[in-house]
Design a binder for these strands. Sequence first.
DNA 1: TTGAAAGCGCTAACAA
DNA 2: TTGTTAGCGCTTTCAA
Lengths: 357, 357
Amino acid sequence: MDAPRTPDAPVAVPIAPAAPTLEDVARLAGVSRATVSRVVNGKRNVDPAIQEAVRQAVDAIGYVPNSAARSLITRRTGAVALVVSGAGEGEEEVFRSQVFTDPFFSRVISGVLGHLRARMMHPVLMLAETGQARDQVLSYLRQGNADGTLLVSTHAADPLPGLLVEAGLPAVLFARPELSVPIGFVDLAHQDGARLAADHLIAVGCRRVVTISGPLDVRAARERQDGFREAMARHGEPLVPSAQGNFTQDSGEAAMRRLLAEVPDLDGVFAANDLMACGALHALREAGRRVPQEVRVVGFDDSSVAAASRPALTTVRQPVEEMAATMAKLLLERIDEPGRPPRSVIFDPVLVRRQSA
Amino acid sequence: MDAPRTPDAPVAVPIAPAAPTLEDVARLAGVSRATVSRVVNGKRNVDPAIQEAVRQAVDAIGYVPNSAARSLITRRTGAVALVVSGAGEGEEEVFRSQVFTDPFFSRVISGVLGHLRARMMHPVLMLAETGQARDQVLSYLRQGNADGTLLVSTHAADPLPGLLVEAGLPAVLFARPELSVPIGFVDLAHQDGARLAADHLIAVGCRRVVTISGPLDVRAARERQDGFREAMARHGEPLVPSAQGNFTQDSGEAAMRRLLAEVPDLDGVFAANDLMACGALHALREAGRRVPQEVRVVGFDDSSVAAASRPALTTVRQPVEEMAATMAKLLLERIDEPGRPPRSVIFDPVLVRRQSA
DNA sequence: TTGAAAGCGCTAACAA
DNA sequence: TTGTTAGCGCTTTCAA
């Protein structure tokens, strides 16, 4: 009663080709597994003739080492986690879109990739914006899925640095941790950068200067603010009106409007990042103020929007790619020599003059 | 130029605590390794009492499974490669900075991450912009470092899709491959999107319309261009002046200048992406043309710059995050059921009206 | 339901 | 210089 089965379509059948192993190569080359292993890993002390024979066998058979097996012994994965961690209050999707809208993270990725690939290591991207996500990241790392962690915290009081140190996992941060944790980091001399901006605004003749700050629970935002105020005080301007933003363009635009209402005769603006400076530019244009003729604007970061905006932004450059590359370098150092104490590097900012000031 | 400073760092002594293994847990709980394994992996058929005992032992001892050992048997890593591949001509650093300046890639990452994390999988970021880099990616994958590949090609005739299929590695592409390769992908109905733009420009009264195209060796750019021209032809405008850009803002600005010189009375612009549309906006402002009063501008993608630019861009939305999430979904399907033929999904674009048209 | 035993594929002592 | 041998820590038949 059985209807004859129609044969399955002649689709490219997925034959599991049973990947060749060291054993197979060894047999074909007529040597031991150990010797093959040595050749494959480029260890010295192997007869050139045998080396050649092994190589031929490898090519002939299409051998590729299995990295799980290798990792099991070497305790190395060739991967590092690149984790972006938040405060733990936001919504997942909001956090994601904010993180990835900000050109900052792209620059971090770019810098990290640049340094890592030369060492044949690869970054695994992870988000740790909630407590649960953080636990997942932690357990992922504890399982030995990565050789170390590059951590970018977006908010203060992030518990992750402490947890990583506690777990004995190599890690390096972007930005000095809020809480004192014995861990390496790269950072910028934010106060110096803010001073550069203040000095420049004064130098080009501004007399009524205001600032748009970032969220003041973020250390970098605080330091930029403090540094700016301090420098202005030294120039005899101890009272600098300020409005707070949250590093987004919209928040910068809103802050600028508030400041225009509050200080109608302002002639200089320092924004704590370029995105907000860009927003300020929009608000100023909307208010009919010409930049830089009537109002000068200085941003911070020198992100891609700085050069792209019109007028192009004068800004304080933070060498993010270079910092990220250094972060990777510090991590690899630590992975290579676990005994070594954590190192940190602080970078100096530079003023980049464009059209806005 | 930065002169990195090195602050002194406190020392943290590295204790190598010899991670506990299944064996340790088994001994402590008084059961066999197999039983512990079953409990840890949530297999049924384990006495609740024993289950509890094992769990306690796990907690007491701080056991975490070693994923290299696990992968060796399961042949799963929990990682997928997210590779961005280029044509193979550019410089490494240039490619990196271009890739990561474009908000498009950030959106891809965001969408991928959103889908993957729910399945406890993680993306490993890789670039394959040169032949050498491509080989590295390929060997990384062949070594079993990832369970599959999500591939975003920036250029036509990318050999990687073919190589992946040939190697029997599960993969899904963003955008249909130029060469015919039996592989799954997600894509947008670009022509339909371009038609949306054309219909809108006509509907709002434009009579002298021009386009800024992307590089025409990129399929998406071609389809947007063709779709636009076709739709304009149906509206009785078979000859649409066009200038070519390369998807960057600067190239859009330059293209717009050329078009202004060539077609001084133009009153409508369709740019093949938002970045170029933004550049066009700048060129138009510079030329003293008011948008949208004198010239209407429509972009493509609805990337973050579209809403951020002033005037905000009317644009054709490409649901990149959703597409990327689907790409991840298709890949996981394929990883779970290797026998299954590749699936693809094509998304419909939507016109997003803002201020520029 | 549990345990014993056999590897997964590789590297690294240790001998030869 | 090469081979032998022992695992790395885990999952998974197969019996009990």
